[in-house]
Amino acid sequence: MDCLYLSVIGGFLHWPTVLMFVIYCITIVALAGFMGRATESLAIVAGPQIGGLLNATFGNAVELIISIFALKAGLVGVVLASLTGSVLWNLLLVAGLSFFVGGLKYKRQTFNVHDARHNSGLLMFAVIVAFVIPEVFSMTMNESKTLSLSIGISVILIFLYVAALMFRLVTHRGVYQHKSEAEHSHEEPEWSKWKAIIVLALATVAVAYVSESLVHTFTEVAEVFGWTELFIGVIIVAIVGNAAEHASAIIFAYKNKMDIAVEIAVGSTLQIAMFVAPLLVLISLFFPVSMPLVFSLPELIAMVSAVLLTISITNDGDTNWFEGATLLAAYVIMGIGFYLL
């Protein structure tokens, strides 16, 4: 992990900001590789659903930490933009690359259609209902009432997310088992359960440390390259904060483990929308500037479009490289739009 040493040394020696920005990004991607290997070992032991959930959780912990520091600095716009970027990144880029790379090796890949349809309903609720309603009602409300509405919606989202976990992992675990789960149950994990857990924990701590340093470089890097606050949140923070899911999902898709790849991409989006975003709303109450759950119109339209496109592609439990290319094309179009906005 030479890049991790460079991150620490460069930080102490105050190397040029742009250089440190690049080193921090490379370090996080390298650490994501360890997280992917550890998650794969855990997925073999615990099953695709829990493995995907663990990967999404550890990956989103990075973005949560970055967002908390941004909220502390009063950068509410960056945080909301980063949440938008995470939704677009996971649904369009991570899922798109997974379907595309896996589809180049296998003409047809399948995954649990019951999980896909279950996730579709939650995506519709979390993004289209819970994110659009505050924007609509905020048009006729003052800031205080908008924040109160956001707090209420945030509490409901967190409760429903916990209920969804109970449904899939406790009350209905194994009810909708896909044949690939049984196929992969005889594989031998690379690492033991406890070694994988330790590696995941250490990698998460290291990623959090590097991410904290990375957030302090955004302002100067934005000035150098002419980036806006919205572009930094939607593209840069989302890329850095979700590197772990990106690497792992593609690896799993290449190995034809589509249940885990889809769970990482879609499950991470649900965790962002139903847990991370509402949690940040509640955490912001302890800072000078509170964050209502109100996105800009371009952000809302982009997220709703991503959700509808993903649902239409994944609802049949079947995918190929062309569907992956479609998702990637949508991400590029939206990325150009946010860059020029």
Rank of each mutant, 00 (worst) to 15 (best):
S144I: 05
E40P: 02
S290F: 04
F125P: 00
W191K: 09
E190G: 08
A38D: 06
A182N: 13
V276K: 01
E212R: 10
I128Q: 06
Q109D: 08
Y5I: 13
L214G: 10
V175M: 12
A249Q: 09
L80S: 01
H216K: 12
E299R: 02
E245K: 11
M258H: 03
V113H: 11
P278T: 04
E323Y: 06
L83T: 04
Y209F: 15
L97N: 01
L13S: 12
L157E: 15
E181P: 00
G324R: 10
E135W: 09
V113G: 03
F338D: 03
V224D: 08
N320Q: 05
T326Y: 01
M291Y: 00
M139P: 03
T269W: 03
L88G: 03
T217H: 10
T269V: 09
H184Y: 13
T84W: 06
C3H: 13
M166W: 11
K179A: 14
F159L: 15
A306R: 11
F69G: 05
R117I: 11
T326I: 12
I251K: 10
D316F: 06
M139Y: 07
Y176Q: 08
V162Q: 06
L279Q: 00
Y106C: 11
S284G: 00
L6V: 00
V170N: 06
L54Q: 01
A330I: 05
N55F: 10
V234H: 09
Y24L: 08
S213V: 02
V22D: 10
A70M: 14
G11L: 09
A56E: 12
L279K: 00
M124H: 00
G335V: 04
S120C: 13
I260N: 04
T17A: 10
I336G: 01
T39Y: 03
I44A: 12
F12C: 11
A247D: 01
L31I: 08
A201Q: 02
S180R: 06
I260W: 02
V22M: 14
V127C: 11
N256Y: 03
V162E: 06
K257H: 12
V199K: 01
L300S: 05
T146L: 04
F131V: 02
Y5N: 09
C25K: 03
L200D: 02
V175N: 04
F131Q: 04
S7M: 08
Q271C: 06
I197M: 12
G174E: 10
N55H: 09
F100A: 13
N119V: 02
A32L: 04
V170F: 09
L4T: 01
V79A: 06
E40N: 14
L327A: 06
F58C: 12
V79P: 05
N90D: 13
Q49C: 02
S213R: 14
A81G: 10
S7A: 15
A249T: 07
G51C: 12
S248E: 11
H186M: 09
M334W: 02
Q177S: 13
F231G: 03
G324P: 00
F218K: 02
S120K: 00
W227S: 01
Q177H: 00
G102I: 10
S86I: 01
F252E: 09
P278E: 01
T84K: 06
L308R: 08
T217R: 14
T17M: 07
A222W: 05
G85M: 10
V170I: 15
L53H: 05
I236D: 05
K105Y: 07
H184C: 09
E323S: 01
A126C: 07
M166C: 03
